[in-house]
Design a protein around this nucleic acid. Structure first.
Length: 606
DNA sequence: GCTCTTGTAAACATTT
DNA sequence: AAAATGTTTACAAGAG
């Protein structure tokens, strides 16, 4: 309901505390100082108490991320168990040979797919480097893209898989003839009991889920408290992308056996989940590094003479704290791939904006030529981000870009209108005034642009971004290798959804995200999510013999026959929007936004 | 000057 | 009934 997030945000500031994902927490961390700084000394004045606070918040965030990882691992293990067929003996008994054959075929296909994805990512990375958007120093910490972008060979994937599962690969890999395919083998045919995993996972012994890898699983499952099943919670099946409502645990088990038995889809989902876990771990490592760098940086800064943050280089201004640990081009859509996206020229306009000139009220007609789209310097990124949070300077970005950014920053890639409002007010001091004006503009833009898709939810409606549509608005330079993409499109039946997701994700990445520290690596996160969502949703519909995705029908539409913008399907749209978002699972915990309109001043007075 | 894009305002309908 | 949300139209301005 539209009241939901709004009233929650207005009446209860504690909504920020219970975000389900690390990103929410970290996001709050990233904006921690916002509430402390006044408009004049927003960025640098960090006292010891503040620092301690930040540290605590970061630690909490890491803790949450860790838990998230554990959950992911548990989920993954559950899926493995499912895929291994231990819970569906009927199917196993019926056609074990056939299944093995299928699995083997699928392994090959998926391996192929993974390699292609990695190549594509690598290509994309190289392109970014060439464009000067990425600068990789020899001694620099690994880029977020690297794990995939480096084109991991199967053995590397296997190594990752080992690290993720921490245990139950040793026996399996040794017993496997084709070691390069172990990634899938371990996932699909894990019939060997794993004892080490019990040691590795502190949660395993408590919820009894790790024994799923043992033949004793069935007996152990009786000992499980009904609600401790990692794939079951709040009466909903937690299988990625499922969310089927199961009234009680037995019905859930029934559902699990019926809907998530060993089949192509489950197998693929399991593998994707593996990737997700891997990426999350990498993200966690990254965020740890970032935290360290942040603390180091702040310690240094706090001893330096204060200087008012000046967005001398607004090009990099709206990028959140990524500067300390990596050079990934995390900024608002200002890259050569979005040539006409407005941008504040470095040498034009309010090159130096002081707090006295900040109150730019009233209509400002500015368009920024892409010729000012210079490579992004990551030097004062964090400062400028703080700057916009605290100074009432109109951000040099279009409403459409901002809305898109708000949506893409959200974990679910979907936001209610009110959440979009909140993002605006949270990120830009400018939007804490004249609410009627810019809110109207936001609504206007949401309705006007085809790239914004309204998706009806159980609780109301959320807005998502149709990345393909967004890209259509501004012709982009090809950042990937078209032939490679083309090549991918003809490789396998599964390639269709995967490629679509990958391409969309890369298209998105070609517009570097104005990401939060929490997202750490939106690239990989989006990619993983995209692939997972695609697998979850599209495979149900395209797992047939169709080697090409049916045009004009987006995965999301296929997944959720919900109301989207009702427009006559003009031929131009025949290729169909590709939406990478999940719908209808908008978590209430996600409503962490605060409504500044109710407390615009208190924000700074706290 | 034309076209396109964007911002702003406003009217109106629908939903909550 | 009021507020929020969503759609649509109109107009102005900047930029190519």
């Amino acid at each position: 309901m539209m009241q939901d997030s709004g009233t929650e945000a207005k009446s209860n500031g504690s909504a920020i505390q219970n975000g389900p994902s690390s990103s929410n927490h970290l996001l709050e961390c990233s904006s921690l100082r916002e509430g402390r700084s006044n408009g004049e000394t927003p960025a640098v004045d960090v006292g010891a108490a503040d620092l301690t606070h930040i540290q605590q918040q970061q630690q909490q965030a890491i803790q949450v991320a860790r838990q998230l990882l554990l959950q992911q691992q548990q989920q993954q293990q559950q899926q493995q168990q499912q895929v291994s067929g231990l819970k569906s003996p009927k199917r196993n008994d019926k056609q074990p040979a056939l299944q093995q054959q299928q699995v083997a075929t699928q392994q090959l296909a998926f391996q192929q797919q993974l390699l292609q994805m990695q190549q594509l990512q690598h290509q994309h990375l190289l392109t970014l480097q060439r464009q000067g958007l990425l600068t990789i120093q020899p001694g620099q910490p690994a880029l977020p893209l690297q794990p995939l972008a480096q084109g991991m060979i199967p053995t590397e994937l296997q190594q990752l898989w080992k690290e993720v599962t921490n245990a139950h690969t040793a026996e399996e890999t040794t017993g496997n003839n084709h070691s390069s395919l172990d990634l899938t083998t371990t996932c699909v045919s894990s019939s060997v009991p794993s004892k080490t995993s019990l040691l590795m996972n502190p949660h395993a012994s408590t919820n009894g889920q790790l024994p799923v890898h043992t033949p004793k699983r069935e007996s152990l499952s009786h000992e499980e408290p009904p609600h401790s099943h990692p794939l079951y919670g709040h009466g909903v099946c937690k299988w990625p992308g499922c969310e089927a409502v199961c009234e009680d645990f037995p019905s859930f088990l029934k559902h699990l056996n019926n809907e998530h038995a060993l089949d192509d889809r489950s197998t693929a989902q399991c593998r994707v989940q593996m990737q997700v876990v891997q990426q999350l771990e990498l993200q966690l490592a990254k965020d740890k590094e970032r935290l360290q760098a942040m603390m180091t940086h702040l310690h240094v800064k706090s001893t330096e003479p204060k200087a008012a943050p000046q967005p001398l280089n607004l090009v990099s201004s709206v990028t959140l704290s990524k500067s300390t640990s990596e050079a990934s081009p995390q900024s608002l859509p200002h890259t050569p791939t979005t040539p006409t996206t407005p941008i504040t020229p470095v040498t034009q306009g309010p090159s130096v904006i002081t707090t006295t000139s900040m109150h730019t009220v009233g209509p400002i007609r500015r368009r920024y030529s892409d010729k000012y789209n210079v490579p992004i310097s990551s030097a004062d990124i964090a400062q400028n981000q703080e700057f916009y949070k605290n100074a009432e300077v109109r951000p040099p970005f279009t409403y459409a870009s901002l809305i898109r950014q708000a949506i893409l920053e959200s974990p679910e890639k979907q936001l209610t209108l009110n959440e979009i409002y909140n993002w605006f007010t949270r990120m830009f001091a400018y939007f804490r005034r004249n609410a009627a004006t810019w809110k109207n503009a936001v609504r206007h833009n949401l309705s006007l642009h085809k790239c914004f898709v309204r998706v009806e939810n159980v609780k109301g409606a959320v807005w998502t971004v149709d990345e393909v549509e967004f890209q259509k608005r501004r012709p982009q330079k090809i950042s990937g290798n078209p032939s490679l993409i083309k090549n991918m499109q003809s490789s396998h039946a599964y390639c269709t959804p995967l490629n679509a997701a990958l391409q969309a994700s890369m298209a998105e990445n070609s517009i570097p995200l104005y990401t939060t520290a929490s997202m750490g690596n939106p690239t990989l996160g989006n990619l993983a999510n995209a692939i997972r969502e695609e697998l979850n949703g599209v495979m149900e519909h395209t797992n047939s013999n169709e080697s090409d995705s049916s045009p004009g029908r987006s995965p999301m539409q296929a997944m959720h026959p919900v109301h989207v913008k009702e427009e006559p399907l003009d031929p131009e749209e025949a290729e169909g929007p590709l939406s990478l978002v999940t719908t209808a699972n908008h978590s209430p915990d996600f409503d962490h936004d605060r409504d500044y309109e109710d407390e615009p001043v208190n924000e700074d007075m706290e």
